[in-house]
Design a protein around this nucleic acid. Structure first.
Lengths: 343, 343
DNA sequence: CTGAAAGCGCTAACAA
DNA sequence: TTGTTAGCGCTTTCAG
């Protein structure tokens, strides 16, 4: 019958499948959702019909009905270095295995954007949130106000601490790193960093302080602005001192990048003039001159744990008390601390 | 009335809003969706009601009704370096401005996973796909088979080329990079890379060949396996030759990382013994000894363009012929090529 | 300009 | 075991 050809054939629905398999709608649904309430034979028929039509179930419709979207939001400041990227991949891996999609949202560390993004995610009926909180304060209050959603924080904790979180042992690890420098005989160890307000940074500073104090050394702590060049300026200041530091503990990836830049542009000899130990690895860290000694975070595992906890919350145990995981770090000794690495 | 307190109060729906504002359901809908088919006064009342209830519209339900999910899928092999991360952020930026969510899926460059992920996305009723095709072949055939979805490829083209794509001028840029080396007087220039089968790699090889041929030089082209160490091995082979290359053109980020590693572990002097020009920048590239000269891709712009094109397809112009954008690259001259950078 | 009603594709209760 | 039906929350006719 020409002249009235179907212009677009819409995606097949469950009704189509049921019709083709010559069963009722409900039966088709049951057959495909793998529940054993349907005879082996009809299930086969339904499955074949679905196959032939290329049927794909509409998760939107399903979600509307069962009030689960099968999606969770991952809210992070950005994907700067490999660290966050790996956290995300780790989380996605376990979410996917549980048949969850994840929607990633970036906040640039801005609380306002964070709130917007969370609203956005809520409108899309996500079942839970994995978040690196930007400000600690109102952001997640907002979440909990709007909806009773499972939330787990990672990397940074949530101040309103009724939520789960997955962190690393920042303080302890920082202490170990600094103590390694002390073990090399350094008496004046500078600590440099940015973003003082972040919890992780504070913890690492505490670790530094603790190590320094235990050893009876003078603290040389400088938290500078994150602007380009302020790290380099601080290094110049240190070098100009009568009693300059002989080693540096760099407090996160971004800082380390700037330290390395400063070292390179000033041809500072490492570790002779200044030894260096970093919190967080950097890409190419193993291939610098000398290779970077770093306290490295188990990024992928952080993401996995966070996702696992979120799934647990989603699947029922909403009332258990908040859990706060603290993962261990790996201290990777390469050359910049003064050790001669055994290749 | 104690004893029967609402255990959980579900999220407010449009019905709640309508009731509170004392209007019909339809009116409430129209008022909130900003259509001008409602009196200024009632709109105000509805908006106030929505505000008071903390109403957030259910995008799942809306999507089911209007057959638009407001989500697009971004399908990429992985977030290795900063390149892909920036592409994604660029794309997200323009998608968000158009009120689209994006769902990111990773494929590890595996066609089978790619198909799975695409099916997954289709079940979630995405409105379009942004993809870095893994294999060129069947993956997207699959897509088009299952559904008539707008698709735009970036970074790598789609072989079945009825789709839009956003690429960069790989061949031309590679030629420019190699010619720069020739300009430094090099007569034997090695080209090293991995992943021969990728379109981008082939284009860059063509560019290398073209430059070499134009200059009447001997081609020294080696595509090695992506295994760790095979790049280093090739460099050793070159160095052992009677007439070793005096410069290297490294074909992508992963290769460059390995080249840098090999240079470092063998204490090869750059650019004296071997000059280096890379396709793709690496993190820390400016801070290596010497800083890396690189042909860098406009990552963010790639993502933005791809997203823009996708939106255009979604919003109507489904029938226009496939567009193939080719963006320009920036040649960033630092030290590794033999130039003395003007700091 | 507004209200009532239909229906998007699915699952879950209820009958048969 | 299976078919029928109601309804998730929304938009969009269609009357008024």
């Amino acid at each position: 019958m020409p002249g009235k050809s179907k212009s677009t054939n819409p995606a097949p629905t469950l009704v189509d499948v049921a019709r083709l398999a010559d069963v009722g709608l409900g039966t088709a649904s049951r057959a495909l959702s793998g529940q054993n309430l349907v005879s082996e034979e009809t299930r086969k028929r339904v499955e074949r019909a679905a196959e032939r039509l290329g049927y794909q179930r509409n998760e939107l419709a399903r979600g509307l009905r069962v009030k689960r979207s099968g999606a969770v939001g991952i809210v992070v400041p950005n994907i700067g270095g490999p660290f966050m990227a790996q956290c995300i991949r780790g989380a996605q891996k376990v979410l996917r295995q549980a048949h969850y999609t994840s929607i990633i949202a970036f906040t640039d560390g801005d609380g306002r954007i964070e709130n917007e993004e969370i609203d956005y995610l809520i409108r899309h009926q996500i079942d839970g949130i994995l978040i690196v909180p930007s400000d600690g304060e109102d952001s997640v209050l907002h979440t909990t106000r709007v909806s009773k959603l499972p939330v787990v924080a990672f990397d940074q904790p949530i101040s309103a601490s009724t939520f789960d979180s997955v962190l690393v042992k920042n303080k302890q690890a920082a202490k170990v790193a600094v103590q390694h420098l002390i073990g090399h005989g350094h008496k004046r160890i500078g600590c440099i960093g940015i973003h003082r307000h972040l919890y992780t940074i504070q913890q690492r500073i505490d670790g530094y302080r603790s190590a320094i104090k235990d050893a009876g050394l003078p603290p040389m702590l400088e938290i500078v602005s994150p602007d380009d060049g302020s790290v380099a300026r601080q290094i110049d200041i240190w070098r100009a001192m009568k009693q300059p530091p002989t080693a540096i503990f760099s407090i996160n990836e971004l800082t380390t990048l700037q330290v390395i830049e400063a070292f390179a542009s000033r041809s500072i000899k490492v570790p002779e003039e200044l030894a260096l130990v970093a919190f967080d690895d950097v890409q190419l860290g193993p291939f610098l001159h000398p290779p970077l000694t770093a306290m490295v975070q188990p990024a992928s595992r952080i993401g996995e744990s966070a996702a696992t906890q979120l799934l647990a919350r989603i699947n029922g145990n909403a009332d258990e008390p908040a859990k706060r995981l603290q993962l261990d770090l790996d201290f990777v000794i390469r050359g910049s601390c003064g050790c001669t690495p055994t290749a």
